[in-house]
Structures are given as structure tokens and as C-alpha cells.
Amino acid sequence: MSGSTIETLRRMANQIARNFEIMGHVDAVEATADHINMFWDPRMKKQIFGDGGQDLSPIAKAAIEELAQGEIPAHQTRATEFNAVDDIGQSDAG
């Protein structure tokens, strides 16, 4: 059942978008873009940017397009906010 890498990336993007959907389209697009920006390896980003939005949900597609244009979304949730260099507050220990 494991598909090619691009299929995996589409699935990941769609899944992120689906879980943010409840925020409403505009916010969900921003949150999806922010999430992908902070957690994806550049090669993964490059690959999905070059994929033409195939098989992506509207939210995922808009988020990918925004990132592909070089926009850096603001942090939408605390999950993408990290400690500053001398900060101790946050952890995302697994």
C-alpha cells in the first residue's frame, strides 16, 4: 500500500489541511502552510511545489501555492513557536 514519495507527500499535506479545516478556509490555509514550512525538509517542499497541486484538497493546494511563492506564513499555533536562544519555556518532547 505504500505509494511513491509524492503520493505520501500529497497525503501528508491533505491530512494536515483536513485537521485544520475546522478553523475555516483562510486560517486553515495559513496553519497548513506554517506547519509545512516549519517541519518539512526542503526537498519535500520542492517536490510538492513542483507537483502542480495534483490530488490536493483546496486548503492544502492554497497552502502549497502560498509557500511555493516564497511567502513565510506567521505562526498560527504554538506548535510552530519555538524557544528563543536563551529561552526555556517550550518543549515538544515526544
Binding site: 516549519m38 525538509d41 524557544n83 536562544v85 529561552d87 515538544d92
Partner: peptide, 25 residues
């Protein structure tokens, strides 16, 4: 598990949960 995470084992962050994109860190 806690320690491994504290020590910067995730690909996006350095020890102490600071993002790799942060230039100061």
C-alpha cells in the same frame, strides 16, 4: 524518551527546543 527529545533529536530543532531556522540559536 524525554531526554532524547530534550537533547535535540528531532530534525527541526536543536537541544532545548529551539528551531533550526533560528539564526541566534
Amino acid at each position: 524518551v524525554q531526554g532524547a527529545c530534550d537533547m535535540g533529536s528531532f530534525p527541526h530543532e536543536l537541544p532545548g527546543y529551539r528551531h533550526i531556522s533560528d539564526a541566534d540559536t
